[in-house]
């Protein structure tokens, strides 16, 4: 496109746009399919693993009901944008009836609470402000220390 050309504006939709959209949709569907296959392969007992700042806090069986409060470490208030009451950064994790959820959290966005229940291997709950990851893992990964990293 050069100045004065008849092509004043970029066209709204080109064939390339459709190809791009199609490729992206196929790619995401393929990834979904792969993760579904991987989750379906392990039907054995599943565990809940909680990581804070990339470090494993602990692993709990999904079959045993439990409630516990996970504190975000206290030295990160400034980064998280929390000034007042920063010491109270906590997420309450509930394991019940073979599912896991975050019932309460005082992070700014509460996306972890909105996420709802997880139960299938590979599913995760993330609380970015608290750098907390709660994931469902299969039995073979529960024993080994973080294969994925």
């Amino acid at each position: 496109m050069r100045s004065g050309g008849q092509q004043g504006t970029t066209p709204l939709l080109r064939k390339n746009d459709l190809l791009l959209a199609g490729a992206l949709v196929l790619l995401s569907l393929g990834m979904l399919f792969l993760s579904a296959v991987r989750a379906g392969n392990r039907q054995e007992e599943t565990w809940i693993r909680i990581l804070r700042d990339g470090e494993e806090i602990g692993v709990w069986p999904l079959s045993a009901d439990a409630v516990f409060t996970v504190p975000a470490s206290a030295d990160r208030e400034v980064v998280e944008g929390r000034i007042a009451g920063g010491l109270s950064d906590v997420n309450t994790v509930v394991i019940e009836n073979g599912t896991c959820r975050v019932s309460e959290a005082d992070c700014p966005d509460r996306i972890c609470v909105e996420r709802g229940r997880i139960s299938v291997s590979g599913e995760t709950i993330v609380c970015l402000p608290h750098r907390l990851v709660i994931e469902v893992i299969g039995a073979e990964r529960a024993g080994v220390d973080d294969v994925s990293n």
């Binding site: 990834m31 979904l32 990581l51 994925s148 990293n149």
Partner: peptide, 12 residues
């Protein structure tokens, strides 16, 4: 941030 690749679960 969370130093865990597990959340790539969300990628698709």
């Amino acid at each position: 941030l969370v130093k865990t690749s597990g959340i790539l679960y969300y990628a698709p």
